[in-house]
């Protein structure tokens, strides 16, 4: 039988200190909806299935093509992006919850600031003096460039942190995403010049040694970034760096 409606169950919370509640909504079925277009339909008629008037659910989204990471949430128990979660492929009712490892802002919106702080701590950028023309950068071989591209697909979405047992609301662990970004910037010919700075940071508090090797992260990453490979590679790189530092190589 063709579906006429889509049922959604949304975990609502008015603010960080408010109590959470569940609300159920029913919207008209249309083919090829995604969770964002379903949420848009809900806010066009913010009444629960019981007919109770409520506030339009609050969520975040930007690119709508799974490249910005803003719409990450837990959908039917799995953390993923709402914009690429196709309603036709989801079991009903669609259950939406905010990620749990980040401070809640409201409803489905969380604050992923700890991820951006981690990138800052890891020096995850290449400093370039933009005041004069530096000329073309060094050439990169195709293999390195392909690997760099796969690492560069990280959108700081938070899925890998959400599933990591070592990440708790109070832990200082930077998480797999930032570790993998150190690998990206350290393999870049210009980025290499600051490799030591990044390795020092990676060996500091909340760094690589806090990873328990549970490997949940690599399975959760929507961009299929080889996170465990990155963690292993950074393990080797930090070890080599420590030995070099010890023996002054």
């Amino acid at each position: 039988m063709a579906k006429n409606t889509i049922e959604l169950k949304i975990k609502r919370q008015d603010g960080p200190n408010a109590a959470a509640r569940w609300e159920e909504f029913s919207i008209p079925y249309k083919p090829k909806m995604n969770v964002i277009s379903a949420l848009m339909e809900v806010r066009r008629h913010p009444y629960t299935v019981q007919g109770r008037k409520t506030t339009p659910p609050v969520w975040d989204a930007n690119c709508l093509e799974e490249v910005c990471g803003a719409c990450s949430m837990i959908i039917n128990g799995k953390v993923r992006q709402a914009c690429s979660a196709l309603v036709d492929q989801l079991e009903l009712p669609i259950v939406l919850e905010p990620m749990t490892k980040f401070p809640l802002v409201r409803d489905l919106v969380v604050d992923r600031q700890r991820m951006f702080d981690a990138l800052k701590r890891m020096h995850a950028w290449i400093p370039i003096d933009g005041t004069y023309n530096l000329g073309p950068g060094p050439r990169v071989d195709p293999n390195t460039s392909a690997m760099a591209y796969s690492l560069a697909r990280c959108m700081t979405c938070g899925c890998c942190l959400e599933v990591c047992p070592q990440i708790t609301p109070t832990s200082t662990f930077i998480g797999a995403a930032a570790i993998s970004q150190v690998r990206l910037f350290n393999m870049h010919p210009t980025g290499k010049m600051h490799a030591r700075e990044r390795l020092e940071a990676l060996m500091g508090e909340g760094g690589l040694q806090d990873c328990g090797n549970a490997q949940n992260c690599v399975h959760a990453c929507p961009k299929e970034i080889p996170l465990t490979e990155s963690i292993a590679a950074m393990g080797r790189e930090t070890t080599a760096y420590v030995l070099k530092r010890l023996f002054g190589g």
Partner: peptide
């Protein structure tokens, strides 16, 4: 408006 909250009020 459906929402008079003074926090994260998208509406």
């Amino acid at each position: 408006i459906h929402d008079a909250a003074t926090w994260a009020n998208q509406a």
